[in-house]
Simulated scan of single mutants.
Amino acid sequence: MDIQKKIKKLEYMQTEGSNKIFTMYLNTDLSDPDQQGGEWKIHLKNGMRNFEQYLEEGDNKEELENFREVKQKVDDYIKEYEKSLKRGLIVFATADESIWFAERVQMRLDDEFYWQETPELNQLKILGEKYPQTGIILVQQNYIKLLDTNLNMLKDTVGYELDVEEETWRTMQGPRQGNSTTGLGSGNLQKDHFEARYEANQQRWYKSIAGKLDKQAKDRDWKKIFIVGEAPASKELSNQMNKEIDEVILKNMLEHEESKVMQEVLA
């Protein structure tokens, strides 16, 4: 989800009469001490019941019917995705389906429910500011891995491996196969040969990949960029890129799980 585009679209949404917009922010984080017994289900039930009781007392049958239609859509969505809920759930919805937006997010939310003419966007805007489109570039000598993230969730990964003999960076599909040095032999001779060439050519090699990384950052509309890796590789790559780097983290995390990397970098 491109959160900024979604916010801009929702900002112009407004309904009239009985066709109100339902907004929900629901904390579904099972790691939250207050959620160990699945309390989010109780909060959801209470939030929905409060609106229903209020509308019943107001004797607006059409609006009550619209709310119940939205409530059913939300219930159906949760039943379908309950086993894959993350830390929070955001919903914007109308009975006529002119607005339907449901997103499971990897951040803890404050429980909020609204039934009004406009969507309530405050929490969504805060999340957009805190977790914008972000690129994490993991570097380890002859291998570079990009993590494309948004709202603290992984959208895509891309790997580049240097063919030392051809001196070209190749795009890699799928998981990395060990700590290879493409184009070389094996054993200690391979390692010594690579280290010598790396020492002599690292600036030129990283300069040759920097343009591709800048293009990835532009195409993916990264608002923040982190480079993660041991010196001198991470520092040299940072120097060669034209895009502004928000932070260079001197830590080798290339072989770590993506979720661990994101937890470390985006916390």
Rank of each mutant, 00 (worst) to 15 (best):
K243S: 15
I42V: 11
K41E: 07
L10C: 02
G58S: 15
L213Y: 03
K8R: 10
E161S: 10
Q4S: 14
E165I: 10
M1Q: 09
Y54M: 11
R176Y: 03
G185H: 10
E63C: 07
I136R: 00
M107P: 04
Y77C: 00
K260C: 07
L26E: 11
S84N: 11
Q141S: 12
A267M: 13
L154R: 00
P119Q: 07
W115A: 01
D219A: 08
E255H: 11
E166A: 12
G185R: 12
E69D: 14
V105H: 07
A217F: 04
E247R: 11
N50C: 03
T171E: 13
E166N: 12
L162Q: 03
I42W: 06
E199W: 00
T181G: 12
I136M: 02
S84L: 04
D34T: 02
Y198M: 08
E65D: 10
V70I: 13
K218R: 12
A210N: 03
E16T: 09
G178Y: 10
N252H: 13
Q140C: 09
F101E: 06
E255R: 13
L64E: 13
Q190R: 14
K155H: 05
K243P: 03
M172Q: 06
M24I: 10
A231D: 15
S180H: 12
Y25M: 07
K207Q: 15
N60Q: 09
K260R: 01
I78M: 06
W205A: 03
L146K: 00
I209S: 05
E69Q: 15
K86M: 03
Q140L: 09
E69S: 14
I99P: 00
G229P: 06
M48E: 03
D2A: 08
S186R: 10
Y81R: 09
I136D: 01
E257K: 05
N60D: 14
N242K: 14
W115G: 01
Y131V: 01
H256P: 01
V228A: 13
V158N: 01
K235D: 13
S84A: 10
Y25T: 10
L184T: 06
E195P: 01
L124D: 01
N46C: 01
E257R: 06
Y81M: 06
Q116L: 13
I227S: 06
K235H: 15
G128I: 04
K61N: 14
G187D: 06
K235I: 09
L85Q: 02
F22W: 10
M107S: 11
S98N: 15
H256M: 13
L237G: 00
T168W: 09
L213P: 03
K212W: 09
F92K: 00
P132Y: 15
Y160H: 02
Y131I: 06
K45F: 07
E244K: 14
G187F: 08
A217V: 02
I245D: 01
F67K: 06
K125H: 03
W205C: 02
I3T: 13
K251V: 05
R220F: 08
